[in-house]
Design a protein around this nucleic acid. Structure first.
Lengths: 288, 288, 288
DNA sequence: ATAGGTTTTGTCAAGCTTTTGTACAT
DNA sequence: ATGTACAAAAGCTTGACAAAACCTAT
């Protein structure tokens, strides 16, 4: 990703005009460079390192002192996430949320949204992060507080993106979490992706009684009803009513519960793939 | 937000022309500066500090006593930051753009978009600002530079919001500025509002030859063709072709040129009201 | 696949300019060559080996040390066609834009930005594509509509990447298209590359009156003023003022107009090479 | 403004290892 | 042709030093 590390210190010195001793000092003192090593222990630098040294020199020339110049040179890279892989960005976001650093998390999200489409941000960063957080939580590596905090920040952000999603001329989808289910981030994400395909969204939120969903569906005659549950056991108690709704509307079931495969035979679409793909699929079905 | 604190006192001294001793004295006596510190205890100043010292000197030169000058310099900054209400934010935005402060403008837009829908931001902030800027320019109160700079920032931002607006299942609208017309911000805004109502947008940009628009319309069979011109004289030369297109598609004409009333009888919709209202109106017309 | 192995070591030595001893050393130490053997045990080399030795020498000349040079020479053969090449992605992008498929184009750009630096995306994909589009347009193979549409999509994307480019402590550059010039994509790209080298950008956009540029330069005292024009005839009318600005600031002229060579003697830097190289050159000049 | 102490940072040195082109003996 | 040897060049680590720039307090 950063290009191959193939330059020894002498060559880097020649290219950058900085003596080898000084380069080593910068590495030791400021962590400006983290060269890989040859089997024998020689430092090997990549083109990205050449660039970083050039930046450092530029700042020095403008009067910024070495320690600060190094900070800037390092930061310049961190601040240009376009150069980093989505995975790296996800890690950044994860780190910020883990230490309850909301402003930083918001800033990362701002940048992400400036660089990529909403679809990609959701599919490559936010949702993978949520999955990972869930895994860590199961393994006891993430605290409840972290999970709450991260959910709060992300929910706020996603709902911000969602503002106005009920407006327009497209087909309508009613979205709701099954009774008892509190995890709605995945559902909101699904709504956003549908929205980006022109749909109108009516969002009933977490823990929606199935009767409410039924009533809304009767009233709005939506083109799609999306139900969502992470826990598989939410489905069983309402299976009967789900079948009934599926008789009158197109119904889809998302979240981990979809993977159990229940209800597939009853005309309920199971959304078990990734959000973007499923939204695209659903979106392109014939209206019913 | 204040920029990074990276300058040591010597560099600040060089840049501001004030001796280090005096800078320390100002800090101690008037609290003019509150530098962060390096791990070793060295003072670190930010670009904002440079500005504050410059202000202080300016006041001193005009004969204001040091204590008062410091007060003024501090106060100048306290006035700017963190307004919360939309109206205040609009003023902030205007102020930031007027003084070519791109980062500040972006931050304000970030906050605006966090609080309001795209529609509202456009209708209440961006478009009124553009109108006001135009007025000030006519009265000679705004420079060409300010107008160019602001357009650049806002265009980037609006096109950023537009990312992905071609996606989906909604009706399609082709958008273009008439030949010779370079002002496309109003058109982009209109496109965004249409988009928020579920439409798909195909955007041809400024200065689009009418033949091109015709060709695209034949090819894509859009539900709507929106043409845009600020200057009224763009309309006359292409009136004939406009009528022809209007015979085959629903055509709307926006921008100040719409107010002239030309073509109204030829089946061309004139969008002379505010963007949101007009987009809503157009959006709810029967398909043709 | 490697062609026939027919060259003895003496002949390979002659053709490659590398002594037989050294060739054997490279074989032993780095496995650079794996010659077949004659019945009598003589090494026999294939044309592919000649090429590999040539590559090795090339890397050595550029300062890469022997062990790493050998690695690169070997890898060039094994890994060349592996990763989705920029060329292929460029073709994808071109195809999507040609058929007015904005969402697809955005998705491709998302992927590009996820795996490459902004510099690389600009230098290897976006700018070559724009050049190619221009060529096709001249040959009548691309329509005006395609050109407009593609410009719009890319402008939005580039300006999105530009968010925050006014922030920081680096030197400042003022960017503007000469009066009458509307093609600003190249200039934005140049600004982005400068940005990635630590500069702060103030962007005045297309069609900027030279007086405006002059005024801004006086006010901001930038380290660099970059002017841009595709059409050569934009330069003549403002040559006098350009010289004047060049007397007070470092001035660079980019775009196809730079290739005409005008003004070179008047202290105006001509940016006629590729964007990345020129930005690097400009960026490393002494402050003035 | 000065005095006396501290931090920062580029440079150098000593002693040892790795790398690599070339040479030599078998 | 092979294998070994060798020596120059380039690197590595540790430690130290001194000039410049800063700090506080008087």
């Amino acid at each position: 990703m950063t290009g191959e590390a193939v330059l020894r210190i002498g060559e880097l010195s020649k290219r950058s005009g900085v003596s080898p001793e000084l380069l080593r000092a910068w590495e030791r003192r400021y962590g400006l460079l983290e060269p890989t090593r040859s089997p024998g222990g020689l430092r090997l630098y990549s083109p990205a390192d050449v660039e970083r040294v050039r930046l450092m020199r530029q700042h020095l020339e403008r009067g910024v002192a070495a320690a600060e110049a190094a900070g800037l040179a390092l930061q310049a890279e961190a601040g240009a996430p376009a150069a980093a892989s989505p995975a790296a960005l996800r890690d950044d976001l994860a780190a910020a949320l883990d230490r309850f650093d909301e402003p930083r998390a918001q800033a990362i999200l701002d940048r992400l949204l400036a660089f990529m489409t909403v679809d990609t941000v959701l599919g490559e960063v936010v949702l993978p992060y949520l999955r990972e957080l869930g895994d860590r939580w199961e393994r006891g590596e993430a605290s409840v507080a972290q999970e709450h905090f991260a959910s709060g920040v992300l929910r706020g952000r996603l709902l911000g993106l969602a503002r106005g999603w009920g407006l327009g001329v497209g087909p309508t989808a009613v979205l709701a979490c099954l009774s008892g289910e509190q995890h709605d981030l995945g559902l909101i994400a699904f709504g956003l992706v549908l929205r980006s395909r022109g749909w109108r969204i009516v969002y009933l939120g977490p823990d929606a009684p199935i009767e409410t969903v039924e009533e809304m569906s009767r009233e709005l005659q939506p083109s799609l009803v999306v139900l969502h549950a992470v826990a598989g056991e939410r489905v069983e108690p309402v299976a009967e009513q789900l079948r009934a709704i599926a008789g009158r509307h197109r119904v889809a079931l998302g979240g981990a519960a979809a993977a159990t495969g229940a209800l597939a035979d009853d005309g309920v679409l199971l959304l078990s793939g990734d959000v973007i793909a499923e939204a695209t699929r659903v979106s392109s079905l014939d209206p019913r």
